[in-house]
């Protein structure tokens, strides 16, 4: 790892200030991706601004049909949070399925979405739930937030503060993990909310995306049967040693149906 100057601000203002002053500053949330990348010497920030002590970025609240989660809230806290479990149970389950227990104790919502790994879980949740990302300067809809592989709408020095998730009527998630890394090889998040059904896919393409045909079909009939014979073109999907594009396309169909099943089951249990 290249060396860098370490900053440990205890307020949002100080964090933003440190970053703006640095030659090539980078915020560090949980560091669960950023540290491995730096260890591989693939990134060499001059300054690392650790957000671990910025209390303003932490915490969970549920009110008026919105689950609001601070960017620096760890996956473990989201997974274990009773309010999240009641409001959007699958969101807690998704957080509880990221990485492994140790990663979940460090990794955060904000870090995950700002990194926008093509195989990360949270981007699918944000996109399918129609979440809003609040930054230090604006609000960005999930539809506009994830712009490409490891790319987001965040500008230089812009920091995600929290994410607001509208509580859906029903939502489900199904993930098929990569056997080695356990990242999603295909993950499909389905939600049925006030502005209709949304289906978001992670792991399968360079960036999380929605499938409008499935959304349409599920709007008419929210059941696995509605999308049973629907195929997804393999053309733009990832192709690697773990899964070909064709297999990923197939898995999207299977995982989408299972996600719908999961949503129905959770709704029934609620």
């Amino acid at each position: 790892m290249y060396d860098f100057k370490f900053h440990n601000p205890d307020s949002l203002a100080a964090a933003l200030e440190s970053c703006s002053q640095a030659e090539d500053g980078q915020f560090m949330a949980g560091g669960q991706t950023m540290i491995p990348v730096m260890k591989q010497r693939l990134s060499m920030p001059s300054d690392v601004i650790d957000l671990g002590s910025v209390e303003d970025l932490k915490g969970i609240s549920v009110a008026d049909g919105v689950v609001s989660i601070g960017a620096m809230t760890t996956h473990a806290l989201v997974a274990a949070d009773g309010d999240v479990q009641r409001a959007i149970p699958v969101l807690a389950a998704l957080a509880g399925g990221i990485g492994d227990p140790h990663v979940r104790n460090r990794g955060t919502l904000g870090g995950s979405i700002a990194n926008n790994d093509p195989a990360a879980d949270y981007p699918a949740a944000l996109l399918a739930l129609g979440a809003n990302v609040h930054t230090d300067r604006r609000q960005i809809a999930a539809d506009d937030f994830f712009t490409g592989m490891f790319e987001t709408a965040l500008e230089e020095g812009e920091l995600a503060i929290r994410v607001d998730f509208p509580v859906p009527k029903a939502a489900g998630y199904a993930k098929f993990g990569n056997p080695a890394s356990r990242y999603a090889m295909v993950g499909v998040f389905v939600s049925q909310g006030s502005d209709g059904v949304r289906v978001a896919v992670t792991g399968a393409a360079p960036c999380v995306f929605r499938i409008s045909e499935m959304e349409k079909a599920l709007s008419n009939n929210f059941s696995p049967a509605a999308i049973k014979d629907m195929t997804v073109p393999a053309a733009d999907l990832n192709n690697d040693i773990h899964a070909s594009a064709e297999y990923r396309a197939h898995l999207i169909g299977v995982m989408a149906a299972r996600a719908v099943g999961d949503a129905i089951l959770r709704e029934g249990a609620a």
Partner: peptide, 8 residues
């Protein structure tokens, strides 16, 4: 498959 990310 040159790291534990790819070698299962």
């Amino acid at each position: 498959t040159g790291s534990l990310i790819d070698y299962a």
